[in-house]
Design a protein around this nucleic acid. Structure first.
Lengths: 200, 200
DNA sequence: CATTTTATTGACTACAAGTCAATGACCTTG
DNA sequence: CAAGGTCATTGACTTGTAGTCAATAAAATG
């Protein structure tokens, strides 16, 4: 990496750091692009070198913690499918909690937005999660842990629905509910019920 | 109701009708307030007599169909708790489908928004749903259908989480999933699993 | 009929998102 | 190492629209 590239990487990092802090503190709508660039020590125009639209920074802010989960799951192939997914639920809500309510709110808005079609596929968290879960389920079918006729697509969406539902609900309740308490108490029950008919 | 009041009601109705049609067709962000008022045949300023902010109209648009469900449930006291909730899930997703993806997307954004604190409590769909579900669960406890120690608050939030999760997921999948097929197939399984420990 | 109330209007303001031509630091290559 | 090309940076500028408000007129009130 040459000098120019590393300077660019550093600028991007500064913007993301500044953005995260400001959004966590004040919320996405309460700040403007200049607040972010000012805090990062660059000019407004620079923001648009790295992000097409103001909202796009949120996907980058949340990418780091959520990608960590995906990596963790790669190294847990010894676990049974339900334990694996249970771990996923738990870690997901840990990330939600650490990102904070303002980031999650805006993140949810972003993935809902029809105009939110980033150039790079990495930006499409939704598609990314679906792909990862499908992989996990297909692997379990190969292992004979799950039956051949398991409706992978449908189950994948149900799991995502559970995750995003918890997050949405947590945001709406203004963080009143302890997400970890919640996941511990119910996710296992629900996962078992959902997978019950397809376990070998 | 005098002449002035009924004229005002009519104006409100025209705005909501125009808003619904435009949002369904083009999406909330793709239209502006003047598009709505023009279609409704009034001036821009009139919009702000009825809605504090542009977004507020969406809550009013979706209030009608969702309130119908609440009324239906009032007249179903002969049903067991799980059947009742199952019906609720089914009807909820019917409403989601009929409102269309653009309205639901914006609606979800609205309830997530920290700034979205309408004056009248009717606007707070979230609190409204919570209250209604709590009432249903408490009634079931009184009937001895559910145990005394049922965690009403927590179960209420889990149910809402399921509902909003399905809706969010449906919006993200761009309406690809048939919500009714989905609810029929899985909601009963999940409801049973959740309520199992608390049934008498 | 005089006075008050209130819905309507549209020009106007305020604000911020996103653009773009100019700049210069850095990189490439002959 | 010099010349030419590349590309991140800049901030003044454009554009678009959400929301305001003083003036108006129609209807209610007494």
């Amino acid at each position: 990496m040459n000098k120019r590239q590393s300077a660019a990487q550093e600028t991007r990092r500064k913007l993301i750091t500044a953005g995260l802090e400001l959004i966590k503190e004040k919320g996405f709508d309460a700040i403007n692009v200049e607040d972010i660039t000012h805090k990062a020590g660059v000019a407004k125009g620079t923001f648009y070198t790295y992000f097409k639209r103001k909202e796009d920074i949120v996907l980058d802010i949340s990418r780091v913690p959520f990608n960590e989960i995906a990596q963790e799951l790669q190294n847990m192939n010894h676990l049974k499918i339900i334990e694996k997914l249970s771990h996923y639920f738990h870690r997901f809500m840990e990330c939600v909690e650490s990102c904070g309510i303002h980031v999650c709110r805006q993140w949810t808005k972003d993935v809902l937005d029809p105009n939110n079609v980033p150039d790079n596929k990495d930006g499409q968290k939704w598609a990314y999660d679906v792909a990862m879960l499908k992989e996990i389920l297909n692997a379990a079918i190969k292992n004979k842990e799950l039956k051949e006729n398991t409706p992978v697509e449908l189950l994948t969406h149900i799991i995502i629905s559970e995750l995003y539902g918890m997050m949405t609900c947590w945001c709406m309740s203004d963080g009143k509910f302890e997400p970890l308490n919640w996941t511990n108490k119910f996710c296992n029950i629900q996962l078992k019920a959902i997978f019950e008919p397809y376990l070998n």
